[in-house]
Simulated assay, not measured.
Amino acid sequence: MRYAIVIERSGNSFGAWAPDLPGCVALGGSAEEVQRRMRKAIEMHLAGMREDGGPIPPATTGVEYVDVAASQ
């Protein structure tokens, strides 16, 4: 399964979350670190859902970038 994650910088650290998995978040000191931690967080989140007998949500979020002029 492949889930989209959002990585945000805040000061000297980074946070990440998965739109398709509410409550699944991670923090790290770099974008690479938070991505590694988010992978582990998703694995743990899905394992907990399986243990609880809940369904695993499908990955439905897509990510695209749009180019716009920075100034006019």
Rank of each mutant, 00 (worst) to 15 (best):
M1V: 14
R2C: 04
R2N: 15
Y3M: 08
Y3V: 13
Y3K: 06
I5M: 10
I5C: 00
V6C: 07
V6F: 02
I7S: 00
E8W: 03
R9C: 11
S10H: 15
S10T: 14
S10P: 01
G11Y: 02
G11T: 04
N12I: 08
N12Q: 11
S13I: 11
F14E: 06
A16L: 03
A16T: 01
A16S: 14
A18K: 06
P19F: 01
L21P: 00
G23L: 08
G23K: 08
G23R: 11
C24V: 05
V25A: 05
A26P: 00
A26L: 00
A26K: 00
L27P: 02
G28Q: 03
A31Q: 14
E33F: 03
E33W: 05
E33S: 03
Q35L: 04
R36Q: 13
R36H: 10
R37A: 12
M38L: 11
R39C: 02
A41T: 05
H45C: 12
H45D: 14
L46Q: 11
L46M: 09
L46I: 15
A47V: 04
A47T: 10
G48H: 02
G48F: 00
R50E: 09
E51Q: 11
G54L: 15
G54P: 01
G54K: 12
P55Y: 03
I56G: 04
P58I: 09
A59H: 00
A59N: 00
A59Y: 01
A59S: 00
T60N: 14
T61A: 13
T61S: 15
G62M: 05
V63L: 03
V63E: 01
E64A: 06
E64W: 10
E64V: 02
Y65H: 13
Y65N: 04
D67N: 11
D67M: 11
D67V: 15
V68W: 01
A69P: 08
A69Q: 13
A70R: 12
A70M: 08
A70N: 11
S71Q: 06
S71F: 10
S71Y: 07
S71A: 15
S71V: 15
Q72N: 14
